[in-house]
């Protein structure tokens, strides 16, 4: 296989990184141009991270990087060295994320499901920052998570349900 970067056939150098993903530290030697999303999907098989645009425009690949909602397609894995990443696969014991998942089902916020993981993680980050966001706060936080199926109303309502449950 040729040593080539996706960017102009330049062989990317490699770096040794340690990234804690879903509470497990992983040490890999990775090409410096490997996107965090590809590291999660291809190296760790964490496929809840969806690739929708590759340019930070759609939010489908959102993960929590040190707790912050982050588009993993415009962050390189080497940039996450020493940091911790949370994807939905690691959220089984996370009460807030669990509550959001249940609310998404109960409020009918899921249709094709492709945007769903990113939506849930974005809202989890928002609710950790601000326990009582207004509807407008929620809309603003979700503006970077595109959805083509729902018209957003039920996603916003799912978030509001979790807010009013006071989790």
């Amino acid at each position: 296989m040729p040593e080539a970067s996706l960017w102009g056939e330049k062989a990317a150098t490699k770096r040794r990184v340690t990234i804690t993903v879903n509470e497990i530290p992983y040490t890999y030697t990775l090409p410096v141009d490997l996107r965090l999303a590809d590291f999660l999907r291809e190296c760790l098989n964490l496929k809840s991270v969806k690739l929708g645009c590759g340019a930070g425009d759609c939010g489908a690949c959102t993960v929590l990087l040190d707790g912050r909602a982050t588009p993993s397609c415009i962050v390189m894995a080497v940039e996450a060295h020493g940091k911790s990443v949370l994807t939905l696969e690691g959220a089984e014991r996370d009460r807030l994320i669990r509550a959001l998942q249940v609310a998404f089902i109960e409020k009918g916020a899921v249709q094709c499901g492709f945007c769903t993981s990113g939506m849930i993680l974005t809202l989890a980050a928002l609710l950790r920052e601000n326990r009582r966001p207004t509807k407008e706060d929620i809309k603003r936080a979700l503006a970077g998570n595109l959805c083509r199926c729902t018209g957003y109303q039920r996603i916003i309502n799912a978030a509001l349900a979790v807010v009013s449950d006071g989790l």
């Binding site: 496929k47 809840s48 690739l51 994807t87 939905l88 998404f104 009918g108 492709f114 849930i120």
Partner: peptide, 21 residues
């Protein structure tokens, strides 16, 4: 009736498998 979607859980868990997965 309006039961919850039968594919709701796999989708909120991020487990639904699309071509790219």
């Amino acid at each position: 009736a309006s039961p919850y979607r039968i594919d709701g859980k796999i989708k909120t868990d991020g487990k639904a498998e699309y071509i790219q997965d």
